[in-house]
Amino acid sequence: MDAEITEREYMHSGHVGCPGCGATIAMRFFLKAMGEKTVLVLPACCWSIIAGSYPQSTLKIPVIHAAFETGGATASGVRAALDMLGDTETTVVTWAGDGGTFDIGFQSLSGAVERNEDFLYVCYDNEAYMNTGIQRSSSTPYGAWTTTTPGREWKKMRKKNIVEALVAHRIPYAATASIAFPEDLLRKAEKAKGIKGSRFLHIYASCPTGWRIPSEMSVKIARMAVQTNIFPLYEVEDGLRYTINHKPRGYLVREYFRHQGRFQHLTDRDLDEIQKMVNEDWELLLRKAGERV
């Protein structure tokens, strides 16, 4: 099955991502699907560093470093410039972290997709502001420790459902993907590439440093997020048609939490509570996908 995944690499060795960084795996897979006719807009995030400090670049495609809050706007501008040059081949991609997407870049993203700008926005989600030292974002899940939700002050709010926010804009394509499901990720990237208008891809990307997990468990834990329904794989076309791409066998969330330092303080009661939330979200998704009435 992996034979279908191209050997072509658009990323060099020698980048400075942490050992086991899920965000780098996400990029490697993503670009294999996109190919070289891609321009990347990179608002401030870990990837701004990983991409290399001037005059180095770890990517084989053009990258434009942008201000933290401008992912949507910069991409709109790049698209307009390419259109003026008559370049219809190149795909404009914004590649932003969860902080740059869920929080500070949200206005710019919302504006761009409301205009249905012809670009693909990818949020690689490591569930906190990792590059500046693990501050909570609105993507940080309920129950997590971060440096701004320390000790007993662990985060008591639920993770924002960003895909639903984008779906509410009725964009042509919005989907989730995970570094632990490469075939699914590549297929979605390719599909998004072939669609005109605003597309959104939400990629789950583990962060050994910020999640306090052993680097070798990085992919395994990302996979568990899917297996436990914490991060379901699905896609939504035209803001209406839901497809669930993977039906897990129903692992308990406990398994996923047990392995991560950022959740070690949670009690059995907390975990039961979380299990309920996950079940509730999953049921909701099933209903949207027409698999429950």
């Binding site: 020698g14 290399g52 180095q56 670049s57």
Partner: peptide, 17 residues
Amino acid sequence: IPRSCLTTEGNKTGSWR
């Protein structure tokens, strides 16, 4: 516009291991 002209392959990140 500053434009990168080198890859990151000069960084021998194996030394982190």
